[in-house]
Amino acid sequence: MKDSVILERLNKGDEKALDYLYKKYYRMMTKIVLSNNGTEEEAKDIFQDGLLVFWQKAVRGDLILTSKISTFLYSICLNLWRKELDRKSRLTNEIKDGETYQAGESEEKVKIVRTCIDELGDTCRKILTYHYFDGMSMQDIADKMEFANADTAKTKKYKCKKRLDKLIKSKYTTGDFFD
């Protein structure tokens, strides 16, 4: 499959194109980590993160490829691994210096939101995640979800978001959420 075709499919939020890239470049990209003191698990994580960064850029349409997809992916993964090594090094130094590591402060909040997302219907969940993570346009969401048009998608998104806000607020007090 040509890069231009892949990019076109990615732009429409075609997840099968993502699968294709994952399978095609798995060995090549994980090797970056494996040959630089990383484990198989870390290598997989970095490649997945890198591929998802690429996915987001492609779906949002703010990606102009001046090189091959593999080259672009390679540089993303390399940067991510460098950052991870840097993070690990800082963490080690902090532990050495006796600084206590505080596990993600927002983790609890994310957990609360996740529980409520689970309670949303499939359609709402998809619209919201497509919009906020993938950065999909309303038109693309409409196409993907087979809505009449972008306005329908926009209205649905608005309603779904409001429902989620309400759900969270009904289940948890502001104090729980903002401690």
Binding site: E15, D19, L51, L52, K109, I112, V113, L128, F133, I168
Partner: peptide
Amino acid sequence: SIVGGLKEYRKDELKQRLN
């Protein structure tokens, strides 16, 4: 926090798919 949660949710979903 809500948008952060939604992003994490989708990211995990896609990662599960890739796995």
